[in-house]
Nucleic acid binder design. Structure first.
Lengths: 236, 236
DNA sequence: AGCGCTGTCTACAACATTGTCAATAAGGAA
DNA sequence: TTCCTTATTGACAATGTTGTAGACAGCGCT
């Protein structure tokens, strides 16, 4: 191959905005984060993001090494943001009774607003489980259980509380992903109060369970009693 | 542009497998369905699927018109399959009391096994809500409520039952997408019985709610009473 | 002013993927 | 057998996206 010809004399076009490396990082991450929320990891395209920021796409490569590097960075940042937000919400309203609905609502909006639930879904779908924020569940479950035992004298099994936390988590996650479609499909209107009603109802259900435990037939001791349901055919 | 030169004389290579249009459709759809379950709609690549089936990619274009046509077809088929499966499960175990856990387990595996929950998630994430199967929720809610009223004399509001159905649906969906990660994160082991325990526990929670309704402070009349939580900041 | 670091650019390479086209051949019908 | 329909194919076009190479240009420093 012939050696590349030298660039053309070049017309005088000296108008470059030079940011600090940090600034550039942040601006690029912000733009990428937006795309991430809208179209998922695969929606992160260098050219688009470059256009959003107002730079050329090699600039992004320069700062993040590769597309993958950018994806890692933005995913990590977003996940960290979610975790911090959740921690903040949980510690602020430190599991105060009576504030349950508010807490649920806050977590719901946290998962929904910035597309955090969507991000978790995407990561999971693409085979990269977002364990980071999920790690919170264990701690949350234990904390709730401690409070529960202290408050009501009930010596409920830990797993009961953990399952409760799991249920709410999964439901809020599902709400964050499927969102309005499910509300409408379920027969609730698509009016904006539907979510609030759902949250308040869920909290009442929880309260009812926490205080009413015992009127259930089988208190569920612990170990795998699996009486019915033995043949499982789950693919994985 | 110069007109294209005629093909080369061609060496004798007569070995083509000719399927009927129906056969071809099915084989291609099967292959596409597999990819769909593994990597979502974007994972459907003509060349890969063609290779899986053992044809060249223009053959797929011939049968489905375009990539989009193929995606539509496979998504439609998969969604219809899910709907039929759910209907089958629900009508077989026609909401028999006592069979609750089994029913929940069946729906769970139906959503999980063939990646139906994942598919719904994908479609929703990509902006195409999978309403088809979700439509079932309204009917299911009403049916359950009718049965509930008939069984227990309780004149519970319809919405209470609908919210219950919604909760379970969202939870099972979340389970189908996040799966084991959440179980482990919640503190439940990653042992295979965790799901069963969750399902059985959920059913007991439901039963408890259905029969214990009334011991909650506010029976929740109906309209948006939103006392706390008024400022909502949901983006959409 | 002169110098060096490095953020930024243009141009291009490399690759993947969808879609088009005309030729080919399998299988049934006449 | 001959003809016709159409499933199938190889070659190619068109486009989009990531990544590379080298030049260019702010900006702080001496």
């Amino acid at each position: 191959m012939a050696t590349r010809a030298p660039r053309r004399p070049a017309a005088p076009r000296p108008k470059r905005q030079r940011r600090s490396a940090e600034e550039a990082h942040e601006q690029i991450l912000d733009a990428a984060d937006k795309r991430l929320g809208e179209a998922g990891p695969r929606g992160i395209r260098l050219q688009e993001i470059a256009a959003d920021v107002g730079v050329s796409h090699p600039t992004i490569l320069h700062h993040f090494g590769s597309r993958q590097g950018l994806v890692e960075a933005v995913v990590t940042r977003s996940l960290a943001g979610l975790r911090d937000k959740i921690v903040e919400v949980l510690s602020e309203r430190a599991l105060d009774a009576g504030e349950g609905a508010e807490l649920v609502r806050l977590v719901s909006t946290t998962l929904g607003d910035r597309g955090h639930a969507r991000l978790m879904a995407w990561l999971s779908l693409e085979g990269r489980p977002a364990e980071d924020p999920a790690k919170l569940l264990r701690g949350l479950g234990l904390a709730m259980h401690a409070r529960r035992v202290a408050e009501t004298g009930t010596p409920a099994p830990v797993e009961d509380t953990q399952l409760l936390v799991l249920l709410v988590s999964l439901a809020l996650f599902g709400e964050g992903v499927l969102g309005d479609v499910m509300f409408e499909s379920a027969g609730l209107g698509n009016d904006p109060t539907a979510r609030d009603r759902f949250h308040e109802w869920m909290v009442r259900l929880i309260e009812q369970h926490l205080h009413g435990e015992g009127l259930v037939d089988a208190p569920k001791p612990a170990p795998p009693t699996g009486k019915a349901a033995r043949r499982r055919s789950r693919g994985k």
